[in-house]
Every structure is written in structure tokens, then in C-alpha cells.
Amino acid sequence: MVRTKNRYIVVQIRPATAMKALHMKDHVITKCVLHNVKKYYGDYGLGIIEKGFRIKYCNDSTKIAIIRCAHRSHKYVQSTLPFITMIGDVRAKFCTIYTGATIMQCNKFIIKHQQQVLDRMVGNIASAKERNDFIKRVMEFEIE
């Protein structure tokens, strides 16, 4: 049996207006990406990416998603993502931040990326008391 190779694309969804949490479901993002691939590459492009395409992870609070697609079709998906301006009924865009061969490498990248974002946010806080309060709030954050 032949192993199918996949590529995992880590994207950050950036809404046009500032939102605390982006309430997106997997099927909304899937429908949006498939529609745009069909728009730019036609039935041929849609047929190529449909086999291995799936949204593996979507986090509303960090606005990060992982898209899985077949190895031979990931370039169709990656080249279409910058042209997407509407996701469902929200005006937003995709920013590709990493492409990996395994989902474990993508998870490692996301952890490192979020740590850098947190370090930047903590660095912008002037007083030590506010910085400690911010770190305490982040550590007590519970994912629902």
C-alpha cells in the first residue's frame, strides 16, 4: 500500500475589525477555501484538492487554523489563500505563517509563535505590577 503524503498549512485569520474571539467553525472555513479554489482554478483545481483537504484545527481566541491537504495539491491552496477576503459573513484575510509535513511540527511552531506574541505583549507593558497582573491573567486562562 502506498502512503499518502500530506502538507499542513498553519494560517492566521485576521479580521478587518478587532474582535476578541472569532466564532468560526471548520465547515465555514472549508466552504470558503473550496469556493475560492474553484473560483481561481476551476473544476480541475477543486478536484485535485478535494481528496485530502480538511481543517484539522481552528482556535477562535488565537485565530489560528491548520489546514491539511495532499502533498501534490498544497500549492493550489496556498496560492489561493491571499485572495480570500470574506470568511463566512466576516471580512477577514488568511495569512500563512508556516507550512509543514507533519502536524506535530505545526504544533511545535504554533507554541513557539504564541510564546513570541506573548513576549511582545508583555514587553510593551510599562510597570512591573501591570506586567505581573497580565501574566497571572494569561496563566489562569481556561479554554472552553
Rank of each mutant, 00 (worst) to 15 (best):
E50T: 07
I111H: 06
A65S: 06
M104Y: 09
L22I: 08
L34I: 11
I111W: 09
Q105G: 11
A16P: 05
G100D: 04
T102D: 12
V33Q: 06
Y44C: 12
T85P: 04
V90P: 04
T85C: 14
R14K: 10
I97K: 00
R68I: 07
H74F: 15
Q105K: 04
I55A: 03
T102F: 04
T62H: 03
A92T: 06
G42E: 15
K38L: 15
V90Y: 13
K25G: 13
Q12S: 03
K20E: 09
Y44G: 08
T99I: 15
I84N: 01
K39G: 03
Y40K: 15
F83E: 04
L22T: 01
V77Y: 02
I97T: 03
Y8V: 08
C95M: 10
Q105A: 11
K108F: 08
C32N: 13
V77I: 15
A101H: 11
K108W: 00
H74G: 07
M104I: 09
D26P: 03
G52P: 04
I84E: 01
R72A: 08
A21D: 04
F109C: 02
C69S: 06
Q105T: 13
K20F: 10
E50M: 11
P15I: 07
K75C: 12
H35G: 15
Y98W: 08
T30G: 12
I66D: 02
Q78F: 06
M104V: 12
F94Y: 09
T17D: 02
L22G: 03
N59H: 04
V28K: 03
V90M: 11
G45Y: 11
H27T: 15
I29C: 11
L22D: 00
L34W: 11
I55K: 00
T96L: 03
Q105M: 11
V77K: 01
M19N: 01
G100C: 02
I103D: 08
K93R: 14
R54A: 12
H71W: 10
I97Y: 02
N36V: 08
T99A: 09
K25R: 14
E50H: 02
K39R: 15
I103A: 06
D60R: 02
F53R: 06
F53Q: 09
F83H: 13
V37Q: 12
I49F: 05
T30M: 13
Q12R: 08
M19Q: 05
R72I: 14
K75I: 14
K51Q: 14
I29E: 13
K51H: 15
S61Q: 07
C69R: 04
A92S: 10
R54N: 07
A18I: 09
M19T: 00
D89G: 12
M24V: 07
V28L: 09
T96M: 05
M19F: 05
V77R: 03
D89T: 15
N107L: 12
Y98P: 07
G52W: 05
